[in-house]
């Protein structure tokens, strides 16, 4: 058991060292979520549509104004969780989840590179468990992903994101959700790509997966706004559950819905466990067949 842990940490630490020593890679993977956040999040003000402009309000009698405001706030609460939420913060949290998608993609890619460079063979002739290789990749993906996600949050804060965290426990839940999401996504991608022999195939498959996973999640808009069929897809997308946990604990302050949060967190935990086991199982088969 201790031997396995040290194998996993050796493989993970190799990835981590390579990652923090090439800031350009860190920068490149952060830039896309930042673009989404700052362009889409700032320009497409979805929540702003539910706020009635002052000059229109002035034309209405005060009692109607109050009624209208109540209705609009109700709509906002239903869709976004709180009436005073701003769309930029909403998207910024979404991007904290999406960046895990990008970092997970590159952990799948690192297996393709290891295969091409012969490193994978070196790992396979070492007296280590085959599972340790995959677990090492998943753990490094989690560490990288969580770090970069928190970096996106800091940049978001600098750009005007409004966080409302009620306590340290909520912050730790957010980190836990990010870790589980990292495990889910990286295992999922490893499961899909482990049999691909070249990194060119990897890039094609990664590109094919990224946008659908992002658009079928609640990263850019609330699930409640989606048509029925898309809601079903969103419900089995781990990105949705990860992002929903984050929004509850990071954006809604003390008024967050702990029941909903626990529900999403449980599904995420199950997803992470199943995906990790599946990743290990499929890669054991693929690596044995070499």
């Amino acid at each position: 058991m201790i031997a396995r842990a040290s194998e996993v940490s050796a493989i993970a630490s190799r990835e981590i060292k390579k990652w923090y020593r090439s800031p350009i890679l860190l920068f490149m993977t952060t830039i896309q979520p930042l673009l989404w956040m700052s362009l889409y999040g700032k320009a497409f003000n979805l929540t702003g549509m539910f706020r009635i402009p002052e000059d229109i309000l002035k034309q209405l009698p005060p009692e109607s104004t109050a009624r209208f405001a109540a209705i609009m706030n109700e709509i906002l609460s239903r869709f976004f969780g709180a009436s005073d939420i701003d769309f930029f913060s909403y998207i910024a949290v979404g991007m904290m989840g999406v960046i895990l998608l990008f970092t997970s993609m590159s952990s799948g890619m690192s297996i393709a590179w290891d295969r091409r460079l012969g490193v994978l063979n070196k790992l396979l002739v070492a007296p280590i468990s085959r599972s340790s290789i995959i677990l090492g990749k998943v753990i490094s993906a989690i560490i990288r992903g969580v770090t970069q996600s928190l970096l996106v949050m800091l940049i978001g804060l600098a750009l005007g994101m409004r966080l409302r965290v009620s306590g340290l426990v909520e912050l730790l839940i957010a980190v836990l959700a990010l870790a589980l999401l990292g495990a889910s996504l990286s295992s999922l991608i490893i499961s899909v790509t482990i049999r691909l022999k070249s990194w060119e195939h990897h890039i094609a498959v990664s590109n094919l997966l990224t946008l659908p996973l992002m658009f079928t999640s609640s990263a850019l808009y609330p699930v409640t706004l989606m048509p029925e069929w898309l809601r079903t897809v969103a419900a089995i997308n781990p990105l949705t559950h990860g992002i929903e946990v984050l929004r509850e604990v990071l954006l809604l302050g003390a008024s967050f819905n702990s029941q909903a949060m626990l529900w999403h967190l449980s599904i995420l935990t199950i997803f992470a466990s199943v995906a990790t086991l599946l990743g290990i199982y499929l890669s054991n088969i693929a690596l044995r067949k070499m």
């Binding site: 063979n121 070196k122 070492a126």
Partner: peptide
């Protein structure tokens, strides 16, 4: 056994010492 394959598998971005220590960990 030890294997030194045809390709160079040492990691360019790590130091010689780190490469060796990585292998040490893989071999317990």
């Amino acid at each position: 056994i030890g294997l030194s394959p045809q390709e160079l598998t040492v990691d360019d971005e790590l130091t010689g010492y780190e490469n060796m220590m990585l292998h040490a960990a893989l071999y317990h």
